[in-house]
């Protein structure tokens, strides 16, 4: 064996890794924000009595959730231009991840909406609130509390999916790590450091979400 770990080459390129991590976070933030809006609208669609809203929502969720995200990434970047839709690699990846997270979050939100007791909506109606007031003041705040625990693992999962952007040469963390790997031949060291950065970031994310969960918990 006789392999001696030597991190110095990786440390010299550490800035590059951090830049990659920053881009990963940026990609995740933009994509998931769009995904949340998409997921929420889709969740209401899934629960709608009107087939016109329910069917498209169901088709969207089914197609996206049953396609590997890497295939979606490659399709958006390589196949869409053939159809005349040309996006930069970052835009292309953000669009894909947004679409992908929207489908997953739609199911999470749907569960959260179903868990809001019907009696509370009736109580809202009984005091004269309109449907939209009930949605904003009663249903959404309770839904959010219902989904926070499972949302945390979904969000972390989606953040890690940004590593797939490396497949289309978006210079995020995994892409940068691979570059350093090739340049320095320090395979083990590079991937250890990259993994540590992912673990650290995800842990911080999880801690922040736990804190939010605690802050929003209902006193009892």
């Amino acid at each position: 064996m006789g392999y001696t770990l030597n991190f110095s080459a990786v440390w010299r390129s550490f800035d590059q890794l951090l830049m990659g991590l920053a881009l990963s976070l940026g990609l995740a933030f933009v994509a998931i924000t769009i995904g949340c809006v998409l997921g929420l609208v889709t969740a209401f669609g899934l629960l709608s009595k009107r087939g016109m809203l329910r069917h498209p929502a169901r088709i969207y969720v089914t197609i996206i959730r049953n396609t590997p995200i890497l295939v979606l990434v490659l399709f958006t970047f390589f196949a869409l231009p053939q159809l005349g839709i040309r996006l930069g690699k970052i835009e292309s990846f953000v669009a894909t991840l947004a679409l992908y997270s929207g489908a997953y979050l739609a199911e999470v939100f749907r569960g959260g909406l179903l868990a809001v007791p019907n009696g509370l909506k009736e109580a809202g109606l009984a005091i004269g609130l309109t449907q939209s007031q009930i949605r904003n003041s009663i249903v959404m705040p309770l839904m959010l509390r219902n989904v926070l625990p499972s949302l945390s693992s979904t969000l972390i999962s989606l953040f890690k999916d940004t590593s797939l952007a490396a497949a289309i040469a978006v210079p995020e963390l995994t892409f940068e790590a691979r570059k350093i790997n090739v340049e320095t031949f320090r395979v083990i060291e590079t991937w250890i450091v990259a993994s540590c950065l992912y673990v650290a970031t995800c842990s911080v994310l999880a801690a922040l979400l736990r804190r939010l969960e605690r802050r929003m918990s209902i006193p009892r």
Binding site: P117, G119, L120, E122, A123, A126, S137, L142, R145
Partner: peptide, 13 residues
């Protein structure tokens, strides 16, 4: 009208 329900239906949050 005002209504009171069997299950109270207070907004828990």
């Amino acid at each position: 009208t005002g209504m009171a329900f069997q299950q109270f239906n207070l907004f828990p949050h």
